[in-house]
Amino acid sequence: MNHPTTHVSQTETPQGRWEHFPHQADMGVKGIGPTKEAAFEQAALALTGAITNPESVRPVKAVSITCDAPDDELLLVDWLNALVYEMATRNMLFGRFAVQIYDHRLQATAWGEPVDVARHQPAVEVKGATYTALSVKEEPPGCWTAQCVVDV
């Protein structure tokens, strides 16, 4: 059964906050911020939070990411999947993000470092972002949320 608990981010900044929401087998990631870009950045922190404490990840190396999709929701899935791919192939974790979105094209920088098993204690690999509980919306005005379930 699902339990109505949420794992709220440890730091809430003017840029927003992130949460996990329950899914029976896996985990939902949610970013909340004043802009769509901020919500996408926070959703990426929530993605890292599924693996380790994002604050334990040092911003040693920057990686550029671009993706585009026909709508905001598919763009969120593409963004998170691009991060999953970069984490897997570079053997890195990311703890800081800067996102810009023009129409449905996203340009971003992710800062992070190679996985350090002893320090990061990574709990799971994320296999991919899914379309389950997927939404990107501004409600009320000035409050964006970007969320979906990730398969772990």
């Binding site: 059964m1 699902n2 339990h3 608990t5 794992h7 996990h20 329950p22 899914h23 029976q24 087998a25 896996d26 985990m27 599924a50 709990a123 799971v124 772990v152």
Partner: peptide, 12 residues
């Protein structure tokens, strides 16, 4: 078996 509890509930 299938999970009966979400991952973050388990970690709590």
């Amino acid at each position: 078996a299938g999970r009966s509890m979400s991952r973050h509930h388990a970690t709590r």
